[in-house]
């Protein structure tokens, strides 16, 4: 079971990793749409996801990414992968 505390830690790490890709300085929130709001192209999305994978020592299959739009979606996905690892 993931606690709110775990969630917040995952979210903080993801926000930190996302910051360098946030070239327009958009205020990051759980409902920020990673590709659309931050104007990140597909190549950078993959780079960013690899950094997330390394940070949490998990694999995020490309297939699972199609359901991810927002920071909160990614936090949930990371939690589920940590859980299954």
């Amino acid at each position: 079971m993931s606690t709110d505390n775990d969630n917040r830690q995952v979210e903080t790490t993801i926000m930190e990793l996302l910051a360098p890709y946030n070239k327009q300085g958009v205020a990051l929130a759980p409902d920020t749409d990673i590709a659309a709001d931050l104007n990140i192209d597909s190549a950078d999305v993959l780079n960013f996801v690899m950094e997330v994978e390394d940070a949490f020592d998990i694999d995020i299959p490309v297939n699972d990414l199609s359901d991810v739009r927002t920071v909160a979606d990614l936090v949930a996905l990371v939690q589920s992968r940590i859980g299954s690892a």
């Binding site: 993959l46 690899m50 020592d57 694999d59 299959p61 297939n63």
Partner: peptide, 19 residues
């Protein structure tokens, strides 16, 4: 299930296979 590894990065692939 499709898992990507960094270009020509054998160690990255190795970590992924191990995991």
């Amino acid at each position: 299930t499709v898992v990507l590894f960094r270009h020509n990065d054998v160690e990255h692939l190795r970590r992924r296979l191990k995991r």
